[in-house]
Design a protein around this nucleic acid. Structure first.
Lengths: 232, 232
DNA sequence: CGTTCAATTGATCAGCGTCAAACTAGGTGG
DNA sequence: CCACCTAGTTTGACGCTGATCAATTGAACG
């Protein structure tokens, strides 16, 4: 692993405040791997041997049951994923696959648990990550249970617009097929939902999104901090 | 607060291993309150001033948006709720109301955060609670996105049967109206789903559930540890 | 330039929600 | 102790949302 990579990892909130000695110990057992696209990194149900950190590329978290599959999240650099399974020494609840050529750091879960037990700053950081993750999933559940698919799409677009600087123009960062699954609908239905938002000033040409009147879209979407604000 | 109550709280995994002095400090700021049924204890969006511990009764966690409401969870004694909001010092994402006359202990969130910062055993326990909660919500999301309403009901009944000792006979612990909302359907649809399970040996008379052939129901429900095992 | 896969479109259908009404049970007061 | 009242539950009819299936168009990549 290059020093620059290690620095970038150390700068993550999860590791920033921990004892340098402990961080170094963690990194000694770590190794970087390069994966091509569409590689399954981890599989639901298996023991969580490694904490993963994505350094470049994109990773999809997905879940399957009875021949059905759904996208749970997409993970962007630089961040960790599957922290809860690692800490609890429990099987993965989700699978992960690369969506692009990706570089991923693998930290042996046992090392993470060992250092979690002795480094107070690290365990506090783990708490904040988990609390954040927990709240994100709760918001997601509310989104799913309380909103129709068009409302979910409208709010998703408003959130992405906000993240991209609220200019009313941005690009989708994932395939529509994947976005549909994440939003809990079929690709066909997403196509129709996009059309249904045209009267509210939304145009999506390939990956290029234009929202001509945010206020108008908001009358439909009715965004609320306790679902749509990622920092709330 | 009675010494017996304090002992019961101390026996919770969350507090069991922490320094006695810190636990005592936490309890000094605590107070027990008695609530009648149908009282809103906390409200979505408000600052999380207290960590709540239910000592007797039942509490429903629910969420609202745009005049719609959904049940997120029911909380049984003795356990804490809304830990993530307390730790992050963030607004509540869910509201809570009593479903019966209930006794609830309120711990000032600031005290919890203060002691969380200085007591390593406590912060580790918080981690395990949050990781557990996180995984529970993820399983819930998979249940919602991957299963039809009948499949969700079938698996819910199998889980409850297992929790009640796998005798094939148990009582529902919540109103059907509430169960329907928790499972993401309407009361009417729950009624019909119950009827649809009759060919699989399920009878529900008022709150009394009978599963005559668990194996048969499982062919429909296809339960899996990574959704249905609460300890997984 | 052709192959492959995503995205779209149309037609159809199933699952589930909505609305209205009847039924039932649990709690309350006479 | 019984009758009544209220609220939860069930049932039926109907309609909408969103899934499925099939075919076509479009775009990316070797």
């Amino acid at each position: 692993m290059k020093p620059a990579d290690i620095l970038e990892i150390k700068s993550l909130k999860l590791f920033k405040d921990m004892e340098t000695a402990n961080f170094d110990r963690l990194m000694r057992g770590a190794y970087m791997q390069n994966f091509p696209t569409q590689i399954e990194l981890i599989t639901e149900g298996e023991p969580s041997d490694f904490l993963h950190i994505i350094v470049s590329g994109v990773v999809e978290l997905f879940a399957t049951w009875n021949r059905r599959e759904t996208t749970m999240a997409t993970i962007w650099p630089v961040s960790t994923f599957i922290l809860a399974a690692t800490i609890k020494d429990a099987p993965y609840l989700m699978s992960a696959r690369t969506l692009q050529k990706s570089r991923v750091v693998l930290l042996p879960s046992q090392d993470v648990r060992d250092i979690f037990k002795i480094d107070a700053a690290f365990s506090r950081a783990v708490v904040h990550d988990l609390a954040q993750g927990y709240r994100t999933v709760v918001k997601n559940t509310k989104d799913l249970k309380l909103r129709s698919s068009i409302e979910r799409l409208a709010n998703y677009l408003l959130r992405q617009n906000w993240r991209a600087g609220s200019t009313g123009k941005f690009d989708l960062k994932v395939e529509k097929r994947l976005l549909a699954s994440y939003l809990g609908m079929t690709p066909e239905n997403l196509s129709r939902a996009i059309k249904a938002l045209q009267p509210y000033g939304v145009t999506i040409d390939a990956i290029h999104v234009t929202i001509s009147d945010v206020a108008d879209l908001e009358t439909l979407a009715k965004p609320t901090p306790s679902i749509d604000n990622p920092y709330h």
